[in-house]
C-alpha cells in the first residue's frame, strides 16, 4: 500500500515541479543578464492563464492537430515517471526502462513534428524538419550513453542503475566520465536549450521547438508548454539519477528517509537549473549547421565511453 502512495506522489511531483524548475532557470538567467526577472512561480500563472482561454484552430488542421497535445503531454509524463526521484522503490520499476524512456520521448517528438506539418504553415514545417535533424543525431547518442551504462551495470532499469551506483560497484571510471559528458550535451539539445535552440526566441528564423507549436493556442498550447517543461525536468532528473543519486531513499527505508530523498532531489534540481542558466548566459547560440558537429561530438563521446569499457572491464 505504501509504495503505491509514494508512487502516486512521485507521479504528481514530476508534473508539479516542472514549471518551477523552468521558472527558476528563467529567473537566474534574468538576474545574470541584469534584469530582475519574473518570480519562479510565473510559469504556473502562465499555464493557468492559457488553460482558461479558448483554442483557435486553423481550418486546414486535421484530427491529428487536436490529439497531439494530449499524446505529447501523456508520453512525456509517462517517460518522466520512469525515473526515480525520491525513492527507488517504485511501481514503474519492473514495467519500463531507459530504452522505453527514449522511445516515449521519440513518440512525443514524432507527434509534435507531425502537428507542426499538419496546419500547413511554412514555419511549422521548418521547425519539424529541424527537430528531426536534431533528433536523428541526439537519439543515437542518448541510446549509446544508455548502453554503455547498461553494460557496466548489467541492467537497463534506472532504479537498478541507481542501486548499482549507490552500492559502490562503480568508481571514477573513464567510461562514466565520458558518458556523463555525452549525456550533458544530449540533454541540452533534447530539452531545447541554448547552444541548439533558444527557448525564449521570438525570431522565427532561429526557432526549432517554438516553430512547431506556433499554431497552438489556449489549452492546447498549455499542454505543449507543460510537456516542454517536463522534458527539461526529465533530463535534469536523468542526470541526477545516473550520476548524482546520493540521498535517494532505498526500498525498505522508513518514511522520513523519503522526505530526505525528496529534499535532496529538489536541492539537486535547483542546483542543476542554476548551472544551466549560468551556462546559457555564458555561451552563444550555435549556427544550425554546427549542431551536426556538436551532437556528432556527443555521439562520439558516448561511443568512446563504450569502447573504454572494453579496456577497464576487460569484457
Amino acid at each position: 500500500m505504501i509504495p503505491l502512495l509514494w508512487g502516486i506522489l512521485h507521479t504528481l511531483l514530476v508534473v508539479a515541479a516542472a514549471p518551477w524548475a523552468t521558472g527558476l532557470t528563467r529567473r537566474v538567467k534574468a538576474r545574470l543578464q541584469g534584469r530582475r526577472g519574473a518570480s519562479c512561480w510565473q510559469p504556473y500563472r502562465d499555464l493557468w492563464r492559457l488553460l482558461q482561454k479558448d483554442s483557435v484552430i486553423a481550418d486546414s488542421a486535421s484530427w491529428l492537430f487536436h490529439i497531439t497535445p494530449y499524446v505529447v503531454f501523456v508520453a512525456v509524463w509517462l517517460a518522466a515517471t520512469i525515473l526515480p526521484t525520491l525513492t527507488t522503490d517504485m511501481i514503474m520499476t519492473p514495467a519500463a526502462d531507459l530504452i522505453a524512456l527514449v522511445a516515449l520521448l521519440g513518440v512525443a517528438r514524432f507527434f509534435t513534428a507531425l502537428a507542426g506539418l499538419d496546419a500547413g504553415t511554412a514555419f511549422g514545417g521548418l521547425g519539424a524538419s529541424r527537430e528531426m535533424f536534431i533528433a536523428s543525431l541526439g537519439e543515437p547518442a542518448m541510446l549509446m550513453v544508455t548502453f554503455s551504462l547498461s553494460v557496466l551495470a548489467h541492467t537497463t532499469s534506472p532504479a537498478h542503475l541507481v542501486e548499482f551506483v549507490l552500492a559502490g560497484h562503480v568508481g571514477l571510471e573513464v567510461s562514466v566520465g565520458l558518458a556523463m559528458g555525452a549525456l550533458l550535451m544530449v540533454a541540452l539539445a533534447e530539452s531545447g536549450r541554448i547552444p541548439i535552440d533558444n527557448p525564449a526566441t521570438h525570431l522565427e528564423l532561429t526557432m526549432v521547438h517554438e516553430a512547431m507549436v506556433l499554431e497552438y493556442s489556449g489549452r492546447h498550447l498549455a499542454l505543449m508548454e507543460a510537456a516542454a517543461m517536463m522534458r527539461q525536468l526529465l533530463f535534469l532528473s536523468l542526470i541526477i539519477c545516473l550520476f548524482l543519486p546520493w540521498g535517494i531513499a532505498r526500498p525498505g527505508d522508513a518514511a522520513p528517509w523519503l522526505l530526505v530523498g525528496l529534499a535532496a532531489w529538489i536541492a539537486k534540481v535547483a542546483a542543476l537549473s542554476v548551472v544551466l542558466a549560468a551556462y546559457e548566459s555564458w555561451i552563444a547560440k550555435m549556427r544550425l549547421f554546427r549542431i551536426a558537429d556538436f551532437l556528432g561530438g556527443a555521439l562520439l563521446l558516448a561511443l568512446l565511453a563504450t569502447i573504454f569499457l572494453y579496456v577497464s572491464e576487460a569484457l
Binding site: 568508481g171 571514477l172 571510471e173 573513464v174 566520465g177 565520458l178 573504454f308 577497464s312
Partner: peptide
C-alpha cells in the same frame, strides 16, 4: 581511476 580520468 583518477589518473585514468585525468588521462581521459
Amino acid at each position: 581511476n583518477l589518473a585514468h580520468l585525468i588521462g581521459a
